[in-house]
Amino acid sequence: MQSDNQSTDPLKSISLLRDYLLPNLLKEDEKEILYWAGKELARSNTFDSLEELTEQMTTIFLGELIQVKSTKNTMVYDWSGPLVSHRLTTKTAPSFSLEAGFLAEGYQQITGTYTEATYELDFKKSRVTILLQSDHHVSLNEN
């Protein structure tokens, strides 16, 4: 029989790794390294559609990704869920660079346009807003 305290253990475990161990190991390079790692993780997958990318984000990073705005060169997503809420309430400024890098690379794979991502923390609404920016003038020719 599982107690109520055990039901949050996975959130605590992931948060402990992401918000305390990794920052301690990576120091001032944390955000850049995690962003690159997110891109590398996405490269190990193949995405046929934005829906598939969204499903993978949900599965891998335990959250909900909702597109809230789209223009020719930008897409805005809200990232939320129990893990996001937990991390936002237990850490002053948790990094979501891993998720941002994964989303940017996945979007780049699907569209064939050079894409980078940034994010903003919204503590009041317990979510992260991820901004994807694409440059349709940059060639992604693979050699």
Rank of each mutant, 00 (worst) to 15 (best):
G38E: 03
T129C: 06
E30K: 10
N73K: 06
D19L: 01
Y114P: 06
T46G: 00
A104H: 00
N73Q: 12
E64W: 01
H137Y: 07
S44A: 04
T129D: 02
K91M: 12
R43A: 02
V76N: 04
S44Q: 10
S97T: 05
D78T: 14
G101Y: 04
V128W: 09
F102I: 00
T90A: 06
I66C: 04
N143D: 14
K124E: 15
D19T: 12
L41V: 06
A93M: 13
E51C: 03
T59H: 12
S85L: 08
Q108R: 07
T74V: 13
T74D: 15
F123E: 13
E142P: 02
L34P: 05
L98N: 06
W79P: 04
L131M: 11
L65I: 13
Y35G: 00
G63I: 04
Y119R: 00
G63V: 01
N24E: 08
K27Q: 06
G81L: 01
A117V: 08
T59I: 05
L103D: 03
T129R: 12
S15H: 06
L140P: 07
L25V: 12
V84F: 14
D78L: 06
K27T: 11
K125N: 14
P94S: 08
T89V: 10
L88E: 07
T54N: 03
T90I: 09
K27P: 01
Q6E: 13
I14W: 14
T46S: 07
Y114A: 14
S95Q: 12
S134Q: 11
T71P: 09
P82H: 10
L132G: 03
T115I: 09
D4N: 05
G106Y: 05
Q56P: 06
P23Q: 08
S139F: 02
E64I: 00
F47P: 01
V128T: 09
E55K: 15
D135M: 00
E99T: 07
S139G: 15
K72L: 15
L140M: 14
S44F: 00
Y77T: 09
L121P: 14
